[in-house]
């Protein structure tokens, strides 16, 4: 068995050397196929990161009237914290708000004068609420409005942002669906092209296959060199694909044009993808790539050779 492995591998290397241009074209096709799959996968992950980021930015702010006492605000904070939908509540005191306001508008004399004329802190305390799930904000707002501390509240600002946030979320989710469909279609085309290229390659060997069988070679012996060839094309293609994908993503992450068909997500999230996923799981990425490449090469070879083995 080991002898067969060795001999068929040698035979495959010999075939590759003898048909170097054919070998190069099959390897490039596999590399391009994997590259397309990589970019689509990266895009899907980057879009997910974008969604997560957006969701993280959403919150509800409850503005209390300026004459409400600290105790009442803290009581309200306790009640809100008990809501199952709430992840965390942050209290921003009216003093902090004033300080922040003064800092932000230190150069705006008119605004400073208005505050001075008022003679007292015009702001109330604020509770910033973060939900577990973006969809829960409406529910939380409802609960706050029906709570017993409702008359201490000046304003709940979620309604103002609601449309923008939900609209943006919808947009991204739609774009994500489009990306996945596009990814599947492009990957499908890439796989078909690879399969076809290998089928054509094996077609050029059909006479050799017939001769091998006449000389007394078993089906396994005839098949093995093609499986090895598929393995070689697939693994070399995979290495090329992972290097080119990395550099392409790196280029996009550093502000290269992100409006290409292959990449819809913004450079910030590609950067995040490269940093958090790609680099951290480099061996996994390479392993996945090699597995996919050799699977593509070997399976295509096996399917393509079947029809010539029937005799």
């Amino acid at each position: 068995m080991w002898l067969q492995f060795k001999r068929t591998f040698k035979s495959a290397v010999n075939n590759v050397k003898h048909n170097i241009w054919l070998a190069l074209s099959v390897t490039s096709v596999i590399a391009i196929a994997l590259f397309i799959i990589n970019i689509q996968l990266a895009n899907i992950v980057a879009n997910d990161l974008l969604l997560a980021d957006l969701e993280n930015r959403v919150n509800v702010s409850v503005y209390f009237k300026e004459d409400v006492s600290k105790d009442k605000v803290q009581e309200a904070e306790k009640v809100i914290k008990e809501f199952p939908e709430v992840e965390r509540v942050t209290l921003i005191s009216r003093e902090e708000t004033l300080e922040k306001f003064n800092k932000t508008h230190s150069k705006n004399k008119t605004l400073q004068e208005v505050v001075d004329v008022l003679g007292e802190n015009p702001f109330g305390d604020i509770l910033n609420i973060k939900a577990h799930n973006t969809d829960d904000y409406a529910k939380i707002t409802e609960k706050i409005k029906s709570a017993n501390f409702n008359n201490s509240i000046d304003n709940v600002n979620y309604e103002e942002h609601q449309d923008v946030i939900q609209g943006l979320g919808r947009e991204i989710k739609n774009s994500q669906k489009f990306t996945i469909v596009l990814g599947i279609i492009l990957s499908g085309i890439a796989i078909l092209v690879t399969f076809n290229t290998i089928t054509i390659t094996i077609y050029t060997y059909r006479r050799a296959i017939e001769i091998m069988k006449l000389v007394g070679a078993s089906n396994l012996y005839v098949t093995m060199p093609f499986v090895w060839e598929g393995f070689l094309y697939g693994s070399i293609g995979a290495i090329i694909a992972i290097i080119t994908s990395y550099f392409y993503l790196h280029f996009l992450a550093n502000g290269g044009s992100s409006d290409t068909l292959l990449f819809l997500s913004s450079s910030k999230f590609i950067q995040q993808f490269l940093g958090e996923y790609f680099t951290k799981h480099l061996f996994l990425a390479i392993g996945f790539q090699l597995l996919l490449g050799t699977f593509l090469g070997v399976l295509s070879s096996l399917i393509a050779i079947r029809r010539y083995l029937k005799k």
Partner: peptide, 23 residues
């Protein structure tokens, strides 16, 4: 003739022995 075009004279002859499992 039905020779394997990818193989030279030696390899063509040796191939018959290889498939027969000769050392």
């Amino acid at each position: 003739y039905k020779l394997l075009t990818q193989k030279n004279v030696w390899q063509n002859v040796a191939f018959a022995m290889e498939v027969a499992g000769k050392t």
